[in-house]
Design a protein around this nucleic acid. Structure first.
Lengths: 200, 200
DNA sequence: AACACCCACCTAAACTATTTAGGCAAATGC
DNA sequence: GCATTTGCCTAAATAGTTTAGGTGGGTGTT
């Protein structure tokens, strides 16, 4: 009965690796137990449940992503900051698709509020301080950037842009360029037409 | 041994309803069998597997979405078309979150190529013909719109915009307004800065 | 009307994953 | 050197997926 030295920490890290290898939705306690050559029930000393594991992987991914983003933002502002931040986001998703999927897991509000996701969102807001926006436009812009980054990356991971020219890298650069121009030239854009009618 | 009248069609529709009620990831053959008061094994006459069911729900959702979008586009162009199309997309996701999640399922390339997803993408391209873009900008713009719509809607469904002002409806209108302005004023936007360095 | 055929639905069973209860033995602390 | 903790175990209940093979009700043919 050799002790393998399981800890919550090690299990979560191994779970994250498993997610990147086989996909987040195929992360199971059984697979994790096999990986440590241990019986499944043993994991319950360290994890409350299968859902607990998934949540912890999500929190790990959000931490890693926020850390990388913070590094990328150091000493940058405006367009440079936007591009660096977006690059980190996309690269992380491509390097760690399982972790990225985990990061998109729906967390209950308290957990989400205590996660590094908040830090990440604050960084987007910090980037926008390099542009000339006031509330509520700034909030709208935060949401736009979040939507574009997440939307692009998840469509790219789903294979939506493969097998057609131009390559997704070019579109990514184009989009960032256009977003930067839009935010910079905001006041000089054509006058707003009437708001679209509510959809609900 | 009363015959219930199972067909693939009915099972897929019921599966889609189930997805909207309990979430796409909780759609199981067991749950479906319970709904029809039938034994699980009986479903295998109509569905190849659990994965087969999920794929069929995804294809159904893509069809419905493309049909609705086509209706919305009839007789519209430019900004009106953009707003109507986007509204249909968002409304569908909100009315049918389970189906929407299904529509985002990763399909194998042949299945995807034969799905209504292609029709949907062609509609985005049709909308962009109302603006003054040439290739490859038009393709970039197709991808941008796809990313924004998907990204916004999935963040909204995940609860990302709740519990903070302004409401997500206002941001949605703002984003569409800005995208329209960006596409219209494309040639008059500030000159492009050098492309950002590749991230991979 | 009697027939046969089909197929819709069944039972049974193997396999995998989740979760809890309770036990033993190795590590830890006095 | 002993007691306590706890890491990992066995065992068992619940639940989903999938296949193999059986039975009977509905349909169509002559």
């Amino acid at each position: 009965m050799a002790r393998v030295g399981l800890t919550t920490e090690r299990l979560v890290r191994a779970g994250a690796e498993l997610a990147d290898e086989v996909g987040f939705d195929r992360v199971t306690l059984s697979a994790l137990a096999r990986r440590f050559d241990v019986k499944v029930a043993s994991l319950y000393s360290h994890l409350k449940s299968s859902q607990d594991l998934r949540t912890r992987i999500a929190l790990l991914a959000l931490e890693e992503l926020a850390d990388r983003a913070a590094d990328a933002l150091a000493g940058r502002a405006g367009r440079d900051a936007l591009i660096a931040f977006a690059g980190v986001y996309r690269d992380y998703a491509r390097e760690h698709p399982g972790r990225y999927a985990a990061a998109r897991l729906r967390l209950d509000p308290e957990t989400a509020a205590a996660s590094a996701g908040v830090r990440h969102a604050q960084m987007i807001r910090a980037i926008l301080r390099g542009y000339d926006l006031t509330e509520p436009d700034q909030t709208h812009a935060v949401r736009l950037l979040g939507s574009v980054f997440h939307g692009f990356v998840s469509l790219e991971l789903a294979g939506g842009f493969s097998h057609s020219a131009p390559g997704s890298q070019e579109t990514w650069a184009w989009i960032l360029d256009r977003l930067d121009a839009m935010l910079r030239d905001w006041p000089r854009l054509a006058p707003r037409a009437p708001a679209p009618p509510p959809t609900s």
